[in-house]
């Protein structure tokens, strides 16, 4: 009898712990959106986070297909933030490049001024 109780308790825990999540369709949509946004600003495979996001999105979609919704949600949430980080990194790198271009221009101008004076 105690065994049966323990057994059903365990089943209950397993069910509630791992299979009570609804299908995370909205989260997947968000993740895909973040992904395409990152690609739109020019993130490529060279940005490590983009590859991470891509892999997790694939895993999320696979988990969705198997109705493992909690896994799907977790992968999708991580994929979204990985993609957003990839996007942010690309934008920061671009602004960095812009800064060094400006520094170059300033140096060139200073040099020209120095030659004139």
């Amino acid at each position: 009898m105690t065994n049966r109780c323990l057994y059903s308790a365990l089943v209950l825990i397993a069910l509630t712990g791992c299979a009570s999540d609804p299908a995370p369709t909205e989260q997947l949509r968000l993740s895909e959106q973040a992904m395409s946004q990152a690609k739109a600003v020019g993130a490529s495979e060279q940005v490590a986070e983009l590859t991470l996001a891509e892999n997790k999105l694939v895993q999320a979609q696979a988990a969705m297909a198997q109705e493992a919704y909690k896994d799907a949600r977790m992968f999708a949430e991580q994929a979204e933030l990985d993609a957003r980080l990839a996007e942010a990194r690309v934008l920061t790198e671009k602004s960095q490049a812009q800064l060094s271009e400006l520094h170059n221009r300033i140096n060139r101008l200073r040099k020209q001024l120095g030659e004139l004076q």
């Binding site: 990985d82 942010a88 990194r89 602004s95 960095q96 812009q98 400006l102």
Partner: peptide, 22 residues
Amino acid sequence: RYSDIAEQHSDLNLNQERAVKL
């Protein structure tokens, strides 16, 4: 990840401010 993203946004912002000055 949120911390990383926040930091990147901050770097971006600072760079943009510097760019305006430059």
